[in-house]
Design a protein around this nucleic acid. Structure first.
Lengths: 248, 248
DNA sequence: AACCAATTATTGGTCAACCAATTTTTGGCT
DNA sequence: AGCCAAAAATTGGTTGACCAATAATTGGTT
């Protein structure tokens, strides 16, 4: 069985969605079709796993995911319940959850850009002395790497995380945190951060910090915009290709 | 067993962190202590579950969570690997992940406020005709409910989701989506949306849509700010209590 | 010693079984 | 009938066992 085997043998029937996402899609249909109304109790995990023809693990995984997004609530020894929202919004949200993907770098960079503008602004308004110390420390780490002509993508990101921390807004901090790994990956893969940009960042970081220390919200936001402008531009080029008047 | 039972009987030894979070904390320590370096392969799930004294499910749950945040990468039949970031940022990010909680309503509302300002701006710049139709439809649904003097929290949220969709930025859309259920819960619990506010929203929604149709980015942003100002103010009161010069 | 095929061990992926707590049903009593 | 305690069934929580695919080892051949 070696000569007749063709080039297609390596092609595997890759499954695009993992089982949990498929189950989410099935649950969505239950809601859409009216078999599952807001506030209803889901069939037991065993029943669902049997009905969907998968193990209970996947059902539980799907439930956990939907619970994370606030669409289900499960109580021990009682059952899992659909959120009490209307069918329309339930349906819309489940659909959107399924197609959440973190692969759209353009969107990621852009979202990060706007998040960070607000982050800088709020940090300036609310920073504590501790925050300033931590941000300074992050800047030092970055500068040391740059002095030695080393890559400093992570140190840069750490600076931004510390700024986010100073906003005292856990939600904003979390979001920047979620974006961070992908931003790092993007920077490394696309090599957006050339050496000259990295050296410019040394001053830019300082400008941001100065504005934060001075509690100059507008100044901090502006300094952050300057800092992130280049990387946004670079990614927006690709992004603009498929946004203008896109009908889908 | 009824007379001697005291008021403490209802107190259960609630575990603050679920098992998965505990495991994440343990893994963090492995990284911090240098036993686990960036790029390393984790011990097998079986070994970890044995070492931590829990079932494999919890180890897998923890791994999935860390994978979602981009800190681990698992390959079938091979193993789970630590992201190739530096120890410092790894450590920082894991810490932050553990303490992510969606219970800080003040932070949630505020984050949503800023996200939506950007959402409106980008929607105005990039909206398609389809977007306009969908937003109009959402507005109609909302207005119908208000006309009948019914609660319309969800319809309002659906309007905002449709606007977010028009940004053509999946990351921003996802974030607003993640916040949505908690916003709804907040509105209902705190009853922030009085009847008069809801009626004002009818005009405000239309203003936002008009600006989006006119591709007036600044106008859309401003209209959105007006729309969300009240609810932000109400929540900021509570929020300000523990932010100013808070050392922790 | 060097190479290679067959065997064994290990991996994450998947599923079924057990557990304690709760709910429902049952069946006898008033 | 109505009530209440005991038993059975059902729940999510938790654990261990099995699977196919891969990696490591083995052992014989050159």
């Amino acid at each position: 069985m070696d000569t007749v085997t063709g080039i297609f043998d390596n092609i595997k029937a890759i499954q695009i969605d993992n089982p949990a996402d498929k189950i989410i899609a099935q649950l969505k249909q239950l809601v859409t079709s009216g078999q599952l109304k807001p506030g209803d109790r889901l069939p037991s995990e065993r029943v669902l796993s049997e009905r969907f023809g998968v193990g209970r693990s996947y059902v539980r995984e799907a439930i956990m995911k939907l619970e994370f997004y606030g669409l289900l609530k499960t109580s021990p020894q009682s059952g899992t319940y659909v959120a009490g929202y209307g069918i329309k919004i339930l349906d819309s949200m489940i659909s959107d959850i399924i197609k959440i993907n973190k692969n759209d770098f353009g969107a990621l960079i852009e979202a990060r850009y706007y998040m960070e503008l607000n982050s800088a602004k709020l940090a300036a308004e609310r920073r504590s002395e501790t925050d300033i110390r931590e941000i300074k420390s992050a800047i030092n780490d970055y500068n040391e790497k740059i002095d030695k002509d080393l890559e400093a993508v992570e140190e840069d990101m750490l600076f931004h995380i510390k700024v986010a921390k100073a906003t005292k807004n856990s939600a904003i901090e979390s979001m920047i945190l979620i974006l961070a790994p992908d931003i790092i990956r993007y920077k490394i893969e696309t090599d957006v951060c050339k050496r000259d940009l990295e050296k410019m960042a040394v001053q830019q970081h300082q400008d941001i910090l100065d504005a934060i220390i001075a509690r100059d919200a507008k100044g901090a936001q502006k300094a952050m915009a300057t800092h992130l402008a280049k990387i946004l531009d670079a990614s927006t080029k690709h992004f603009l290709n498929n946004t203008d008047e896109l009908e889908y």
